[in-house]
């Protein structure tokens, strides 16, 4: 018999070329909560955030809803995880922090699709390498974030020579 399960789900909409909305949901044996996060492009900056706790442990936990406003102005860039853990997690709720980071990581992944869509809309080639090049322009912070986008890695050599 399972002892514990945690599920996180993020759905992403792009209502305008310069706006992304992430809806995050976290549910486990102890906690259940939701976040709505708006990002503006091109800086991937959080412009709006709202959260609801449905299941929590102490009567103090819902006070963390107000603390979420600390996230407004944060950008997807190096140092984000530390900021979120401190300003949303320690100051408010670490499970909100976990869910907010999941929303941000999902936005990074979704940007692969945005890069392709933008290239197609501009009438430019949208093969996989063209998408990767555009992604690095949209989100320069992913450079060196993993072995594939390492400056000295095989992919960077192929993309940039």
């Amino acid at each position: 018999m399972l002892k514990f399960t945690r599920t996180k789900h993020v759905g992403i909409e792009r209502p305008a070329k310069d706006k992304i909305i992430a809806h995050g949901f976290l549910d486990d044996y102890i906690y259940s909560m939701e976040l709505d996060v708006e990002f503006s492009l091109p800086h991937y900056e959080i412009t709006k955030i709202d959260g609801r706790m449905k299941r929590y442990t102490t009567p103090e936990c819902p006070r963390a809803n107000e603390i979420l406003q600390n996230a407004v102005g944060m950008r997807i860039e190096p140092g984000l995880a530390e900021k979120v853990k401190k300003q949303i997690g320690r100051a408010g709720c670490r499970h909100y922090a976990t869910l907010l980071l999941e929303c941000c990581y999902a936005v990074i992944s979704a940007s692969i699709g945005f890069a392709r869509a933008d290239l197609e809309a501009e009438g430019l080639p949208a093969d996989d390498d063209a998408v990767r090049r555009r992604l690095l322009v949209m989100l320069p912070s992913i450079r060196n974030r993993c072995m594939m986008y390492a400056e000295e890695g095989p992919l960077a050599n192929r993309l940039f020579g």
């Binding site: 514990f4 399960t5 789900h9 992944s109």
Partner: peptide, 22 residues
Amino acid sequence: MVLCHTRTKTASVLPIADDKLR
């Protein structure tokens, strides 16, 4: 509005012995 991207993660903890979890 139709979603353009989704991500789901599920972590499950299963006891496989008195002294071991998977």
